[in-house]
Write a protein that binds this DNA or RNA. Structure first.
Lengths: 352, 352
DNA sequence: ATCAATCAGGAAAACGATTGCCGAGAAATT
DNA sequence: AATTTCTCGGCAATCGTTTTCCTGATTGAT
């Protein structure tokens, strides 16, 4: 209010209204010190000689005046924004959000915040958002199930990225092992006529998972019949995903005794479709999912599935990204996590 | 274009490596113009006379050099960060993420980005994050299922907030109507002995929903037996939530013919518990959920539930927040959305 | 008593934009 | 021909920090 230059009144700098944040300059002026000094003290910059008395005085005043450093200004100068960007195809999906949950925990703990951008697998959006995130000062990126196609100027960790791009760390599941577990399980239950659901072409796990399954099938001497393979194509995250393809499969009247679903979500849709066709799971058809999302243990029947440690994946990705940002350890370009077979009720022995 | 000050080498200012972003100053220098002018053109500042030729030249160069304005710098000066903060109790939950999905769409469309912070209903975290978000320049806040307790210095819209706080807009469901739909449905199916699941005390919908149910029960002449009321207490977002309380209910051996679950997630848990007790749904016990999350249509049995337009809620909240930020329309302090009864398979007539 | 070393803190230049104001030429008006 | 009005664009301040370099005063050593 009163202007700055005039002198008469003591002014009310002494009465710092709570929840009214003040700037470094104001604080310095109030203390009769230079902003630089105040900054140095408040940041505990090492190698500066400031007597304890002054330090205390500054810190007290900062508290009293409710000084909140302006992060924008700070970041502009110091190049550290404590912010990263997360690229994700879709909000509100089990898989992605569980990973994000792991990421969020870890980041916040490290004092970082994050921007999220969802691109629905649109190439141009992926590009745009990458740029925008960098423009907003993101110091690193975590790309979940997102196909990046060129190197980026800041550290990137891809979750389920499946491309080897210069300088990008990949966190991914041991797909070979996962396929082995899934197919091995069905095989040992006697299943030989197995139907497969392939993921959407734009989902980055699709290909690897499929190749691994093909590999394992071969080793087991299991024939994969093309007419028993259906492909997901819709871009959605509800069980609706798996429903129509199974209907379509059933419509062909080809015999099969088990389905390997692309993930749990689609497995739930698949089961629904089977039931609507008056087939029992697992008595008539076994279904195995993938991911082990939280709901998997509570469906009817409870889902047999391959567990991916989703939150753990998020945490690993984050840790790895932070390491890159801080240059603490030499970056690895691949981090693999192990799947686990979780046997519940949706699979059973083949009818004899 | 050769460089300005030094002379020897041609230097590579002419070879703007793609995906290497350049600053306004560099761009201006390259153009032989003042940064201010470039800024003016790029932002289409009205009331400045710059010939079209120059404008084109600038825009072309900006594209060629892959100029990306530094949002931090811009925001510092202009006080507009195009950023808002979202407070949410938990990541990776159906309800919250569906709302966030609506928010995200709407925000990104408006050129905004957002920080997300999850607080797991911890009071102090809510406070801390609110402050930190403001410190990072958030121009507004959306608080989902989050109990704020004092006014905040920036615009806030609460989703399922249920508190009237000075200046905070609430977006909420018409709970009275929802209760009417849910209870009315069961009542009309002949149910009189109905069990209830109350939400967790820290979930902000809990109280309103409960009060509405009590109100409707009264009007219907339906007695709510205290021993048929169980309360959720765990802070989680998997169906596990509803499982133990229903077990506990069953253990008391009190007779009931229907359960009003707190939400779909807990309804799924409840159904699982009932089935594990050898009760059929809906033949023995009817279960009605709340929210109509995407999976609700695919469970076995498919869930009868009260639909809340979650994405719509997110969109409305966002729109309302942006309006406040831009001061376009006078703020409303409450926005109500209407629920809808979705009858599927988990409810049926009471056995005669 | 002198010189060097330490102490305590100030001055100013960044960081990368935005924005109000101003001025020199060109064009238009009298 | 002299004045006014546009045009086009430059100048410099500013946003709130951080950081590098300095300097004037003390202190300690010889």
């Amino acid at each position: 209010m009163k202007n700055s230059a005039s002198e008469k009144k003591p002014k009310d700098t002494t009465k710092p209204r709570a929840h009214q944040t003040s700037s470094l300059k104001q604080l310095a002026e109030h203390l009769g010190l230079n902003p630089a000094t105040v900054s140095v003290v408040l940041n505990d910059v090492p190698g500066r000689s400031i007597p304890q008395a002054t330090r205390d005085r500054i810190k007290a005043a900062a508290k009293a005046m409710n000084y909140q450093p302006n992060l924008l200004a700070r970041s502009l100068r110091s190049r550290r924004t404590l912010t990263i960007g997360i690229l994700v195809p879709e909000l509100g999906d089990g898989y992605h959000t569980e990973v994000m949950s792991g990421i969020g925990d870890q980041l916040i703990q490290a004092g970082y915040f994050y921007f999220t951008a969802h691109h629905r697998h649109k190439r141009n959006l992926i590009e745009d958002y990458t740029r925008m995130l960098i423009g907003r000062g993101a110091q690193g990126l975590i790309a979940i199930d997102t196909l990046l196609d060129h190197p980026v100027s800041i550290p990137v960790v891809a979750v389920a990225g499946h491309r080897h791009i210069e300088g990008i760390t990949n966190v991914l599941l041991d797909h070979a092992r996962a396929a082995e577990l899934a197919l091995g399980h069905l095989y040992s239950l006697g299943h030989r006529m197995i139907a497969f659901m392939r993921g959407q072409p734009f989902s980055s796990d699709s290909d690897d998972r499929w190749k691994s399954l093909v590999g394992v099938a071969e080793r087991l001497g299991l024939e994969i019949k093309p007419e028993l393979v259906v492909s997901l194509d819709r871009d959605m995250t509800s069980p609706e995903l798996g429903y129509p393809v199974v209907q379509q499969l059933l419509a062909t009247k080809k015999a099969f005794t088990a389905i390997v679903a692309f993930n749990d979500i689609s497995a739930i849709g698949a089961i629904r479709a089977l039931k609507d066709f008056n087939l029992r799971v697992p008595e008539d058809i076994s279904v195995i999912g993938f991911d082990d999302i939280k709901a998997a243990a509570f469906t009817s029947p409870r889902l047999t599935t391959i567990n991916q440690p989703l939150e753990e994946i998020g945490r690993l990705a984050t840790q790895s990204l932070l390491n890159r940002i801080h240059n603490t350890v030499p970056p690895r370009d691949e981090i693999t996590v192990e799947p686990e077979l979780v046997i519940r009720e949706s699979t059973g022995p083949v009818k004899s």
